[in-house]
Design a protein around this nucleic acid. Sequence first.
DNA 1: GCTGAAATGTAGCGACC
DNA 2: GGTCGCTACATTTCAGC
Lengths: 158, 158
Amino acid sequence: MAARLDEMDRKILAALQEDASLSLDEIARRVSSSKTPVWNRIRRMKESGVILRTTALLDAEALGLEACFFVLVRTSEHDAGWQGKFLQVLQSRPEVLEAHRLAGDIDYILKVRVKNARAYDTFYQALISEVRIYNVTALLSMEEIKSTTILPLGLAVD
Amino acid sequence: MAARLDEMDRKILAALQEDASLSLDEIARRVSSSKTPVWNRIRRMKESGVILRTTALLDAEALGLEACFFVLVRTSEHDAGWQGKFLQVLQSRPEVLEAHRLAGDIDYILKVRVKNARAYDTFYQALISEVRIYNVTALLSMEEIKSTTILPLGLAVD
DNA sequence: GCTGAAATGTAGCGACC
DNA sequence: GGTCGCTACATTTCAGC
């Protein structure tokens, strides 16, 4: 699964994580190479799925999405049908930004971005009406003290 | 704080969240406008901080970062000095992708991306040696069932 | 605020080493 | 694997509406 990347690939990825709008010439300059090799490496990494997509990151507060909750979910049902339904509900709800299935006594964690606490309650009511859940704990974020999509490439070396 | 955005601004943001490499012409076509107004709106939204930056999203698994933990932190110390030191440690550690200060009996939640469980333990040992922590619970992700940076603009409407 | 167009920059690809 | 250069397209600016 893990792609074979050399030092130059990692430098290119680091640059693109920082600013995906950099020109090929500028990236080439930073990694001490030239346009064509950089272009070929980027194309290869897109094709192999290392680079998923390029996106604009927005300020949630500026958009009026001022509440962020981490939701700890316990369920008593673990069959495939329930899981499929749960997954479908999560996918269909744009306020669910992340969902992970966990090891241990908590089954799932969700990250949910909404306008305010009232909007979270609306989401919560919809969730528990659509799928059977044993126990839910919501953790309300007071302050996002760090938030990055930049993966630590330096720690990924084999 | 919340910026005033009209329907066209939101459509432009939706397009850029989906694919920040779209050309102005293509975005203009999608929002039924033309190049210059779209360009002016994007510039304005960058300047006002609604658009933070554009980035390449990478596949953590493909990079060999195969373990993801959510870390629930309780502390007994709540003075400014401790908080500053804790913040500084989080900022300096690239494996910490997110950190939130919470309401309730859990004080902080962290999202940590590392190569494997062993690498998490190294991080954990470093963390508790650098800053005094009362209680830590690590939730290990078995499966990322949803992950998006796309904010729900439709839910942000006033 | 929009349109259309000019000028400058960049991406994408081919020929070649 | 790399350099160089060409062409088509994109960005950015600006005059006129």
